[in-house]
């Protein structure tokens, strides 16, 4: 499994042209972001509509760190991820007392608030002061291992795999067991001695941390960020596509990233208005909610299992 993924990461980037290198870099970055959304949705049954805003937080911190210290990209990325994790946890704190609709609304308010804040302050681009705004943008350099677009695509893929593994590790250890209980019933979880508040907060922190990584990678790819990338509407769309793609399996998250960034670009490239994709996204979301809770990935995987069974039966 890991070997074939490694082979893909090695080969595919060298086959792509410049446009699709860029498009796939973005897609993979948002696959990473969707991984965070999926932790909350698939493991805890919580709806977070602030994930793209948290990506923005991670990007902001990464840029600010680099302009202030000039440390290597990976250090700044880690700082961005940690701060974004903390912010994610703060947004999630109300989750200790709320769930369902009201929690989703709190995160939506958070995303909308972030959009306005960051539109006012903009992203650091080499200036003085806390906000670090200069009139002429200084670009943050790419990470050493990702200087060309081709290398950068490999770089983000490797980071994506690491993020999948981090989530998988959490799922298979203590937090994962706690989440499973909490999802069933909080009272049960508490009765079995699970610290409900802590593990819920842990879920939000993990989702935020992963969003921060995505933000850092986005900043690392472009060198500067712009507030128009992080409106609340994008957070909503990313959540919707996470459900459409399938939140329960890594394949679904890869699909989410592709739907989010590659589908509009492909349509644009062949001269079709990219907005039409939204109609399909919307229908896909309704379909997923009504009949296919595991998303496209779930349906693909089910299909494969059926096929395998039929073959074995023959």
């Amino acid at each position: 499994m890991l070997l074939s993924v490694a082979a893909l990461i090695l080969i595919v980037p060298s086959l792509l042209d410049a446009l699709y290198l860029r498009v796939f870099i973005s897609s993979v970055i948002f696959t990473i972001a969707a991984t965070g959304t999926a932790v909350l949705y698939a493991r805890l049954g919580l709806v977070s509509l602030a994930q793209v805003a948290l990506v923005g937080v991670g990007g902001w911190v990464t840029l600010r760190m680099w302009h202030a210290t000039g440390l290597p990209f990976e250090v700044n990325m880690l700082a961005g991820a940690i701060i974004s994790g903390v912010v994610g946890m703060l947004i999630g704190l109300p989750a200790l007392r709320m769930r369902g609709l009201f929690l989703a609304l709190i995160t939506l308010m958070g995303a909308a608030g972030f959009q306005i804040l960051v539109t006012g302050t903009q992203f650091p681009n080499g200036g003085d002061g806390v906000l670090g705004i200069a009139v002429t943008s200084i670009f943050m350099p790419r990470p050493l291992l990702g200087e060309s677009d081709e290398a950068m695509l490999r770089y983000v893929c490797v980071v994506a795999v690491l993020c999948f593994l981090l989530v998988e590790f959490n799922r298979r250890t203590r937090p994962g067991r706690a989440w499973a209980l909490i999802r069933k019933s909080e009272a049960c979880a508490m009765a079995s001695g699970v610290n409900v508040a802590f593990y819920k907060a842990w879920g939000f922190a993990l989702a935020g941390f992963i969003a921060g990584i995505a933000g850092a990678l986005l900043a690392g790819t472009l060198g500067v960020l712009d507030a128009t990338t992080f409106p609340a509407s994008e957070s909503i769309l990313l959540f919707a596509l996470t459900v459409v793609g399938g939140a329960y399996h890594w394949l679904g998250l890869v699909l989410t990233g592709l739907l989010f960034r590659a589908a509009p670009a492909v349509l644009n490239d062949i001269g079709v208005n990219g907005h039409l994709a939204y109609v399909i996204f919307g229908a896909g979301l309704l379909h997923a909610l009504i009949t296919a809770p595991t998303g496209i990935a779930g349906q693909i995987l089910d299909g494969l299992t059926q096929l395998a069974k039929r073959r074995a039966g023959r």
Binding site: A240, V279, L285
Partner: peptide, 27 residues
């Protein structure tokens, strides 16, 4: 189809409808 689901699922479903309308209008 969704009348007996949790409120948050009902809300998220309307989001799908919103995207469909938005895509059409933006087109």
């Amino acid at each position: 189809y969704l009348s007996y689901r949790e409120p948050v699922v009902k809300a998220v479903a309307t989001l799908g409808f919103a995207l469909m309308i938005l895509g059409t209008a933006n087109y």
